[in-house]
Design a protein around this nucleic acid. Structure first.
Lengths: 192, 192
DNA sequence: GTCTATATTGTGATAGAC
DNA sequence: GTCTATCACAATATAGAC
């Protein structure tokens, strides 16, 4: 049930909130236990170590956005697909903002094995974006003086930095932001 | 002299390189001392503590980009000003990539007093961008269906995420990247 | 300006009772 | 599933000699 809040279920969201605010390295297991209302040692009944938690957060977040954005893009017409994709990315990433931010910014704290797994998943996501852009270029819907790789990196710029300044308390909604970023990127990616 | 490399002069660039690669919290004073070829304790002849080093790096980086971008924008015609500004930002930020990245991503490790000082300087920089964008809107050179604040945040997205993927070893030069990002953002900010 | 030696604190994690 | 108690270690920083 989505409303359950057992210690196990709260662990990942509580850790994500903590890791985003303080950074993974500066967040302590004591702070995490305090936020959950249990003792430090009790954490280790639920997790094997701190880094596992970071890995779980990263994989959950990537699975979530891959599913949401992939589904939205597949259901759209070719003409609207890029706009739908950007909108879905902004709304989805901000709906799990803590986990998404941690996934994007705490890569270097992962073990080599976990890092490789997360990077492979991030590459899958970026390939999804690049395929849409390349297809739009081939169909004449986007400019071709900038290659698909560089245009995709430009799109990742437009999308990803948002996590550092978006404030849910502002009156800017994720939906409106999605429209703005889609408008700026797509019209810039069409060119004059 | 620019070619000097006394311990004092190497300290800030060596620390910036380390802080960018490992993160401020995970980078140790031992690693920094090792990279400099001295003992850990000897660091404290040059600095008062680790956080001071982060503050010095952040302020140096902000002073550098404020000066370079401000000068470039002031020397340009109104029609070319935004393009010149974006180009100068990309080239300048990547010319001191380590310090610039640390300044952008390690804010939360600063003491409250240092944090306030750095934020004030970042606000000055962002005001410079917003003033150019607002002026371009008033003169009819940019779309007005997105307000200046949101358009500025969109520009910061386009510019800032670059630090996470730009690789000096690639064949993409900062100059070419500046052209691409300027083209995408400006044409998107003009609209159809 | 750099050294050796050390103080002090905080960290992730485990043992074993309940 | 959570607790108390504790281990083992790594961190920043200082004292004082050279």
């Amino acid at each position: 049930m989505a409303v359950e809040s057992s210690t196990s279920e709260r662990l990942m969201t509580t850790a994500a909130d903590l890791f985003r605010r303080k950074g993974y390295a500066q967040a302590t297991t004591r702070e995490l236990a305090d936020a959950l209302g249990i003792r430090k040692a009790s954490l280790y009944y639920h997790i094997s170590n701190k880094e596992d938690l970071l890995f779980a957060i990263s994989m959950h977040s990537l699975g979530h956005i891959l599913e949401a954005v992939g589904t939205a893009a597949a259901a759209a017409t070719e003409e609207e697909r890029l706009r739908v994709l950007i909108q879905a990315h902004v709304v989805t990433s901000l709906s799990e903002r803590d986990m998404h931010t941690v996934m994007l910014t705490e890569l270097r704290a992962l073990s080599p094995e976990h890092l490789a797994t997360v990077i492979a998943e991030r590459d899958r996501y970026e390939a999804l974006l690049r395929d849409v852009i390349a297809d739009d270029q081939e169909a004449g819907r986007l400019r071709t003086d900038i290659d698909a790789k560089l245009l995709t990196l430009s799109l990742l710029n437009v999308l990803n930095w948002t996590i550092f300044w978006f404030d849910p308390a502002d009156d800017l909604t994720p939906e409106r932001l999605g429209e703005v970023l889609a408008a700026v990127f797509i019209e810039g990616a069409i060119g004059r």
